[in-house]
Design a protein around this nucleic acid. Structure first.
Lengths: 212, 212
DNA sequence: TAGTCAATCAGGGATTTTCCCCTTAAGCAT
DNA sequence: ATGCTTAAGGGGAAAATCCCTGATTGACTA
């Protein structure tokens, strides 16, 4: 019995190279490779193109790994998604797992670990490295994910705060009084334990609220 | 005649996968793969380990692609470095080329393009994609690369400015008067055309002066 | 159905930090 | 000497920060 694998990565060379590795594994065969989530979903329209496992990158244009995984989890629950990314920050990993990924591999694993992961996902239904397990454990004790405590309007303000605009200018573009903006800022500083706007900018970038 | 290739990438899976691709090319064979520049230089101590071409990632821990390439260019000029990276910002590409890389491939190229690039580097001594050529042309007309106009102490200040410290606190840790810090800040604002500290933080992150 | 409660928006006033001029002094090189 | 760089400062305006108060609204609740 051989299992089919689809590789999704916007870096064509990498998807081809990884596909090559997978072809080298006896029980696995590469069905096709795609450049992004949208392309993958398009392929799925033909039932012949539904693989057993999807090896999915996280950062992709158009439809990223998290959104794509969530969509697959809902509409094709039999397809097992194994994330494969250079991103190793906790929130990304958690987001992928929440979206329904059966495992998360950093791109610095060895070929043999990829093989094990594929096998385990088929046999046990999941594969979690030590790093991932740690993230999962941490997520239990830790406070709710940072983004969750911020409201929509606050997030909008934060994005503006990551520009050269003064608070007064931000107030203008958000159609609010500068004093209300101050209110947002104070609430955010309090919640996130920040001292000043610089801290807010760094926080926003670290947590991908604002992408420079 | 076959040519030997060394693959340097901190993501083991990728270096193995890319190595697999290269092994598939008739005229080329993989001598070994390394996790970073330091490891590569250690290998070079044995003359048997000096390849014809090095496929080099840019972002690596310990000794990065730019430093490593510069070192090879000085000490082993016969070795041809072909950069292979996901980074596609102009300054990174320029830095690699200045360090002596014979070409710069984005990781989203096709397998066949990698093959062409390897062949061309052997035959013509270089391989430049359209993107890279454009960067080179732009670099002629454009002002000197942003980093170049900033002095060592200014860069140090910028890194501190990307924290929650006030300018007074930065002055303390840099053993300078707050007024001197102001002088730095004004000079930088002038040079980089910035309005305020937030702009500076964003600039620093975009240009990798400060990594969040 | 009025009353409490929480969330949102806004303001007054004080203090600190940032920003922007413009000047000076020491060290160093041509 | 004359310029150049680096470090430092004075003074003032603008922005950001901090603390405290009030008005409006919608929602639940006794």
């Amino acid at each position: 019995m051989t299992y089919s694998v689809a590789v999704v990565d916007d870096h064509i060379l990498l998807s081809q190279a990884i596909g090559g590795l997978v072809e080298g594994f006896e029980q696995f065969t590469v069905l096709y490779t795609c450049k992004n989530g949208q392309e993958l979903l398009d392929k799925f329209k033909n039932p012949k193109n539904i693989p057993d496992i999807v090896l999915m990158d996280v950062n992709m244009p158009i439809l990223n790994g998290i959104e794509t995984t969530a969509h697959l989890y809902e509409h094709y629950p039999q397809v097992k998604v194994l994330a494969l990314s250079i991103e190793e920050d906790d929130s990304t990993i958690l987001q992928m797992l929440r979206a329904g990924a059966k495992g998360y591999l950093m791109k610095d694993v060895r070929k043999s670990e990829l093989y094990n992961a594929l096998l385990e996902v088929i046999e046990k239904g999941f594969h979690h490295t030590n790093t991932v397990t740690k993230v999962l454990v941490d997520s239990l004790s830790e406070k709710e994910s940072p983004q969750a405590i911020l409201k929509e309007r606050e997030l909008e303000f934060i994005k503006h705060a990551c520009t050269e605009m003064t608070y007064k200018e931000i107030a203008d573009v958000m159609f609010l009084s500068p004093k209300t903006i101050e209110g947002y800022r104070n609430a955010i500083f309090e919640k996130l334990n920040l001292r000043n706007r610089t801290g807010l900018v760094i926080y926003a970038i670290k947590n991908k609220i604002f992408v420079p």
